[in-house]
């Protein structure tokens, strides 16, 4: 660091840029390292997971496998099979329907169902992950909006009303102890029976998961102003509404953004779970379900990765918004 600054002495700007690059480089290596190790372990894990099917195929193709015959190998240990047939293991990374797909298989599937289809002019066909991701994303965003609004309203109520303060939080906590997987089908069925279907049931499940972090964070945030700050507004004879708008809400922004990051990830989970019991034909959840019906593990894994990438994008987007808003509010430092 010191060396970089000295060698780049002609201008402070250059030194600054050099330092930034050095820091970025130092940040990149550990990340690459972790990714590399993970991918390596993943490839290695494909060996014991896929060895039996791979050997069966090799045998069908005419290779000599020890012990002979699929029946004989059924209950054998994968480690023993790997040791006995070292020459015939290549197939574990190229199965059509592997127990564990190899990373490159998932990557290829992801590419083909996104960029590949987009290049072919079918970005929003039924097989495109863009279509499915958008279906899930729309439910996620709607649910996230409802959940956030509900969470903020409840927090405002809790902070201003003693009865709500005493009663709402236990219910909110209890609501989160019910497994969403058990609740989701009931929400879908009940709403369906009153004629509400499509986006809204999924969004409500999403909202059910995302309101909670917002309530918890916002109660803390709305109560974050110091006593002296509240005293000052009291001396101005400010109404509770004025105190809320001018002090409590702005002061709660850092807490809100922290909650939103948790909430948006929970929303995505809610939307995906909401797609499972409906027999939905579209959405990342539907894709997961269809994949598991037909043993399409590559499809399951690529849908999982699509969901993870979507979640990372959403959280990253909120992080960006947080930086901009808090920076403008002078609370970013």
């Amino acid at each position: 660091m010191a060396d970089a600054a000295v060698t780049a002495s002609p201008g402070a700007g250059v030194a600054g840029r050099g330092r930034f690059a050095a820091r970025a480089a130092r940040a990149v290596w550990p990340v690459l390292m972790v990714v590399g190790v993970t991918v390596g372990l993943w490839y290695a894990a494909c060996l014991p997971m896929n060895v039996k099917e791979s050997l069966n195929q090799a045998e069908r193709a005419g290779a000599v496998i020890v012990p002979e015959g699929g029946q004989a190998r059924r209950d054998a240990s994968p480690w023993g099979l790997m040791a006995q047939n070292p020459a015939h293991l290549g197939g574990v990374w190229s199965q059509d329907r592997p127990r564990l797909p190899a990373p490159h298989q998932v990557a290829v599937e992801l590419y083909e169902t996104t960029v590949g289809m987009a290049l072919a002019g079918r970005a929003f066909s039924n097989r495109s992950l863009f279509t499915h991701a958008w279906v899930t994303l729309s439910a996620t965003l709607l649910g996230f909006g409802i959940g956030t609004a509900l969470g903020i309203l409840l927090a405002v109520g809790i902070v201003h009303n003693r009865a709500m303060d005493m009663s709402v939080m236990p219910w909110a906590i209890a609501s989160q102890t019910i497994p969403i997987l058990a609740l989701a089908p009931m929400i879908v069925v009940v709403l369906n029976s009153v004629g509400i279907s499509g986006l809204l049931p999924k969004a409500l499940i999403s909202a059910y998961l995302s309101f909670f972090p917002v309530v918890v964070g916002m109660v803390k945030g709305l109560r974050s102003p110091e006593a002296a700050q509240l005293d000052l507004l009291w001396t101005y004879n400010a109404t509770p509404a004025q105190t809320l708008w001018k002090l409590r809400l702005p002061a709660s922004m850092p807490y809100l953004f922290a909650s939103l990051k948790v909430g948006v990830a929970a929303s995505l989970v809610g939307a995906i779970v909401g797609e499972l019991p409906t027999g939905a034909v579209a959405g990342l959840g539907a894709r997961l379900l269809a994949g598991s019906y037909y043993g399409q593990t590559v499809q399951i894994w690529s849908a999982l990765f699509a969901a993870a990438i979507l979640a990372a994008l959403l959280v990253g987007l909120i992080g960006l918004l947080q930086r901009v808003v808090l920076g403008r509010m002078g609370m970013g430092r």
Binding site: E226, A228, Q229, D231, L232, T235, L247, P250, R328, M329, G330, M331
Partner: peptide
């Protein structure tokens, strides 16, 4: 009837 000044300036950062 009065203005009150606390030990901390307590200005809103936003």
């Amino acid at each position: 009837a009065y203005g009150y000044v606390f030990q901390a300036a307590g200005l809103y950062p936003w």
